[in-house]
């Protein structure tokens, strides 16, 4: 008996134990490796995906807890207006270094930008402090979030 998951608009049936974290289904079962493994304990944010638009840590989210909720990953985030603006701001501001944490950073940032037109520094701290970047791209992440939010707010007018 498999588990049904709705990922990036498509349904997938996967044959894994109910308590398997979503992260491994995405990466190893479905081959969607854009979502990254960093800590396995919701401490670093590298595995962040969206569940009905809200950022969650897929490394501790078991597949039996998801139900009908829609999962969005980095592979599809560019299809949303906020996601596209975040990715563009990341490129415009030359945010990435090693890049490994950036899928998770972009997922957290997109959730913020999608419902906050002008995030303050405190908003950014709240939304982004669960995402570790060992390369230290934080200053550019902060600026890029502001750029993306402004672009997204402008687009929404």
């Amino acid at each position: 008996m498999g588990v049904m998951l709705k990922i990036n608009g498509e349904s997938h049936e996967v044959d894994v134990d109910d308590d398997t974290p979503l992260l491994w289904v995405l990466r190893d079962v479905l081959g969607m490796t854009g979502t990254k493994f960093g800590c396995g304990a919701a401490l670093c944010g590298a595995c962040t995906v969206h569940l009905d638009g809200a950022p969650i840590r897929s490394c501790i989210t078991t597949v039996d807890s998801i139900g009908d909720s829609a999962i969005t990953t980095i592979e599809a985030i560019g299809a949303s207006p906020a996601g596209r603006q975040v990715q563009q701001a990341w490129l415009d501001l030359e945010v990435v270094q090693c890049g490994y944490c950036q899928s998770g950073q972009i997922m957290s940032a997109t959730a913020l930008v999608a419902d906050n037109k002008a995030p303050s520094d405190a908003d950014i701290d709240n939304a982004m402090s669960g995402n570790i970047c060992r390369c230290g791209t934080y200053a550019r992440i902060r600026e890029a979030v502001k750029h993306a939010a402004a672009a997204h707010a402008g687009e929404a007018k």
Binding site: M32, T33, G34, T35, T73, I74, E75, G78, Q87, W90, L91, E94, V95, V96, G99, Q102, S103, I106
Partner: peptide
């Protein structure tokens, strides 16, 4: 501009 940036923002 970094030549490796595009794949690092879209998961590829």
């Amino acid at each position: 501009k970094r030549l490796d940036a595009a794949g690092k923002v879209n998961g590829t």
